[in-house]
Simulated assay, not measured.
Amino acid sequence: MVLKYFRKVDFPLFFAFLMLCMFGLIMVYSASYPIGIIKYQDPTYFFSKQLRWFLIGSIVFIINSILPYRLYGKLSPLFVMLSIMLLLLVLIPGIGVERNNSQRWIQLGIFVIQPSEAVKLLMAIYFAYIYAKKQTYLHDFNRGVLPPLFVLASVFLLVLKQPDLGTATSILLTCGIILLCSGVRKIHLFILGSSAVVGVSFFAITAPYRLRRLMSFLNPFDDPLGDGYQLIQSFYAIESGGVLGRGLGNSIQKLGYLPEAHTDFIMAVILEELGIFGLLFVTILYLFIMLRGVSTARKLTNAFPKLLAIGLTFQIMIQVIFNLGAVSGLIPITGITLPFISYGGSSLVFMLFSAGILVNLSSSARDSKGQFSL
């Protein structure tokens, strides 16, 4: 059994995920040791917790790279109910944990988990499975396309209630890409896409704090000590790193200047310490994962694994785009972490869950010569 697994596993993809995680552990320590000393008198506080989550996530990763992926399709109705239940639990006082004016976490004994990280994965599995089943009548909007969208709308609104428009939008986009690749008629896609853009825009501008964040993104220097502060500090970090960087561990902005230096804005620290080479290292690995995922989807013949490979690949890449775009000031700050690199236990474990399934799918898509290709 073990030898059979090692003969078929997609090792290049396997090691791409592993390298991102290893790099992430190094950068979490580098970015977090000042705040660890200040808050907990322990420079390894955040690193130790991230390492524990990585070990848990590694077990999940290996298990999911072996388990038959068809099992996830059969369990997808349960996943939908679990997603909605978790998102409802978050909103219940005494169960949901509030941090920074957001209620996005649940306390489970000594662990604090963020259910929306699980929901990203579960919704991708559900959409891949349900639209694979509906292939014969996708031309019928009411029967083939519409029913799962009520589930998506419910999940979107529950995540938005936390409030977390960034995560809600990333779930919407991932499911939208699965829908796009499922074979839905173009007119239906246009109607749904237009409705989604209008809906997200409405929620973005009607909440005062979201509108302020949007305005600060357009010109952060209008409010340098308020809503524009974090982005300005990110700019300082990127600029001071230059091409070669200050050197690993030598960031200035992480010393109390840049908020969330080890989470949402860890890429600013990477650029400050490692310069353009840190960005290139990360970008090449992400691009390899994207190309491998798309190649896997093209090779698979059945609708469910094909749509699942697309969904999981772009679930990762959407978060990458959201995070890098926010750090560089190209899109508004969303609070989305950088996959496999940023500090955050729930994000790391469920990203490794997705990665394990993607390695599983890629290993199943080997060509007739037993070789892999992009």
Rank of each mutant, 00 (worst) to 15 (best):
F14T: 04
A16I: 04
F17V: 08
L18M: 13
M19Q: 09
F23P: 03
G24L: 03
I26D: 00
V28K: 00
V28I: 12
S32T: 07
L51N: 01
F54E: 04
R70Y: 14
K74I: 11
L88V: 15
G94N: 12
G96I: 11
F111L: 14
S116Q: 05
E117G: 06
V119F: 03
I125A: 07
Y129P: 02
I130Q: 08
T136D: 14
H139C: 09
F141T: 07
F141M: 05
R143L: 13
G144P: 04
G144H: 08
L157R: 12
L160T: 14
G166T: 10
G166F: 07
A168I: 13
T169G: 09
I171S: 05
L173K: 04
G176Y: 03
I178D: 03
S182G: 09
L192I: 15
V197Q: 09
F202I: 15
S216T: 12
P220F: 11
D222Y: 13
Q233I: 03
S234P: 07
V243R: 12
Y257G: 03
V269S: 07
E272H: 06
E273G: 02
L274A: 11
F277M: 14
L280T: 14
I284G: 10
I289M: 02
F304K: 05
K306W: 01
L308H: 08
I316R: 03
V320N: 01
G325T: 09
P339V: 05
P339G: 03
G344F: 05
L352N: 03
F353S: 03
A365T: 04
R366N: 06
R366Y: 07
S368M: 11
F372N: 10
